[in-house]
Amino acid sequence: MSAITFEKALEAGAAAAVAEPAVVAVARSEPAASAASTASVASSAVPVARDGGAPSPKPESRAGEWLRAAARATLPPAIGLAVMIGIWYLATLSAGGSLPGPVQTWEAAVKLFADPFYSNGPNDQGIGWNVLSSLQRVGIGFGIAALIGIPLGFLLGRFATLSSMVNPIISLLRPVSPLAWLPIGLLVFKKADPAATWTIFICSIWPMIMNTAQGVTRVPSDYMNVARVLNLSEWKIFTKILFPAVLPYMLTGIRLSIGTAWLVIVAAEMLTGGVGIGFWVWDEWNNLKVEHIIIAIFVIGIVGLLLEQMLIAIAKRFSYE
């Protein structure tokens, strides 16, 4: 609903832009869009506040407070989004129609998401399937990386000799673009799909190794002294002290890894083909459906955001103090 009101506001701004220079129009479209978003927030928030506030002794002041808090939380991001869409719109105007604007993209998206899970053979599948198969590749590659990287990180953190043995290798390999590993994967696995998974594996293993190892070396010496004074067994030290103390670092590593993996999968799939959001982007470029590429950018962004938020929520669950 709010997106439609933004667009109406933008159309109003665009009408002004036809007559006036583009720079002035930017300035004008901003207040128009923000006014529209204020209206939409207010209109949707008021009934909710009334329902919730009715049984309390002072419904009006509480509803007012709630409304103000809601406005403070939602207004700035809404304005930001509206400005972005406004700039996009104006950019498409000046590009002369080769770049699809918000309205065109919205219409294409409605059509696209009406049936996200269709399947007409391996090269023509719904966007839902493409996203899911990308997620599957990321899941497998990342999962293997976690199985190897996290225990390796613990070992590196615990044993200094091993750490000084392996650290130069990590320093050498970590800055290499993951895509440079793709041909090696193709050569070894002879297939596109495991090669893409291999690329995900190699790019997501480094943050997990490094963060876990760092977490182990940063376990407060107080806790290790407790372990020594209580004379705990190695197993107890690991389960009761090392693992819980390192967990926040480990989760940071996992979050960075998933972020990188999601970045890399799009590029890897563009090169390998098959079903996947990266391949889909390339395919739509070949079909010259640019609005679909823009939709894919949003989808990739939203999925990445959801992955990140999910891991932040998990990390919050496991933070002590």
């Binding site: 002294n225 407790v226 004074v229 004379n231 819980p244 103090e321």
Partner: peptide
């Protein structure tokens, strides 16, 4: 360290 000699640390050192 041994269990016959127990330490109470300055900053309690409880596992959080």
């Amino acid at each position: 360290p041994g269990p016959e000699r127990e330490v109470v640390f300055q900053n309690h050192s409880l596992l959080p």
